[in-house]
């Protein structure tokens, strides 16, 4: 393998991992920016997406059914949580939010153990996306290209919505000052719910899309939480651009670190987090200045 091919492959690896992190962190950061709600159970929703996706695939025999239905199922779970817990906790202070969502992590953990067992599960990529594809003289798994493409599409769609549409303007106004937005006639409650649902759907989507690569384990919801929080905090809470930048930085550092400095790869990400927070105490691109 030539040096160039090696680096192209590693860059693709970095991009692929960044896109998965983006799908996960965007929901978390926007929900925080808008609702001031730190949803630690976001990782649990990602786990539910993976497990539900695996069940749907084995029931229907089609990955694509899971691709569309699992995010919907996770959204439904999110909607139930929204009306039973989250709506009431919006003004309960961050400590209570931490406690409730941590409780939810525990609950979902055991729901998965009871429903799917302790043994990790795998999911096959759809037939059309199996094998490898040639790109710039290197062969790379087709499914990983699919993840990169999906991440870019979601990224572009969200950016367009937020910056070019009326809903986007309403969201930006509400992030800036939700009382003022409500006074201007925006139905803030409905907007919050819609954004929360989109965040949950993206977590579910990340789960089902990640399952063929990462497989599904009962610990996945907790172990993904820290990388996701790091992305969100590095980027700046509540900011879409922040999530983009954060996930690219974290994905690249983890991947390139693993390739070049494997001995210290596991510590690099924390060093990065500490350095960024010391230099920029509110992240790189904060939503509110």
């Amino acid at each position: 393998m030539s040096d160039a091919a090696f680096w192209i492959l590693q860059l693709l690896n970095a991009l692929q991992y960044s896109m998965l992190l983006f799908l996960l962190s965007i929901g978390l950061t926007v929900i925080f920016g808008l609702l001031h709600f730190m949803n630690l159970a976001h990782g649990a929703l990602y786990m539910m997406g993976a497990y539900i996706g695996i069940s749907i695939t084995s029931a229907t025999g089609s990955f694509w059914a899971a691709f569309f239905l699992a995010p919907l199922a996770v959204t439904a779970i999110g909607a139930v949580l929204y009306f039973t817990l989250i709506r009431r906790l919006r003004n309960a202070g961050p400590m209570n939010q931490v406690l409730v969502t941590f409780g939810l992590i525990f609950v979902f953990l055991d729901i998965v153990r009871l429903g799917w067992g302790d043994i990790a599960l795998g999911l096959d990529a759809p037939t059309a996306l199996q094998g490898t594809t040639k790109f710039l003289s290197v062969s790379y798994p087709t499914y990983r290209f699919f993840i990169i493409g999906l991440g870019l599409v979601v990224m572009a769609t969200l950016m367009t919505i937020v910056s070019r549409t009326q809903i986007g303007a309403m969201i930006r106004a509400s992030v800036e000052n939700d009382d003022m937005a409500a006074a201007m006639g925006i139905n803030v409650g409905r907007l919050f719910f819609a954004v929360f649902c989109v965040g949950c759907a993206l977590a579910g989507l990340a789960g089902v899309v990640a399952a063929p690569v990462f497989s599904a384990t009962t610990g996945m919801g907790i172990s993904i939480l820290i990388p996701t929080l790091i992305v969100v905090v590095i980027g700046g809470l509540g900011s879409l651009q922040g999530a983009v930048v954060g996930s690219l930085i974290v994905g690249s550092i983890e991947t390139i670190g693993a390739a070049v400095l494997p001995g210290v790869a596991s510590i690099l990400i924390y060093v990065l987090l500490a350095v960024i927070l010391v230099v920029r105490p509110a992240g790189l691109i904060p939503a509110r200045v």
Partner: peptide, 13 residues
């Protein structure tokens, strides 16, 4: 886990 989790939620609620 599920029992402790539910207790945490109930305590806050």
């Amino acid at each position: 886990h599920i029992v402790v989790g539910l207790l945490l939620i109930v305590t806050v609620m």
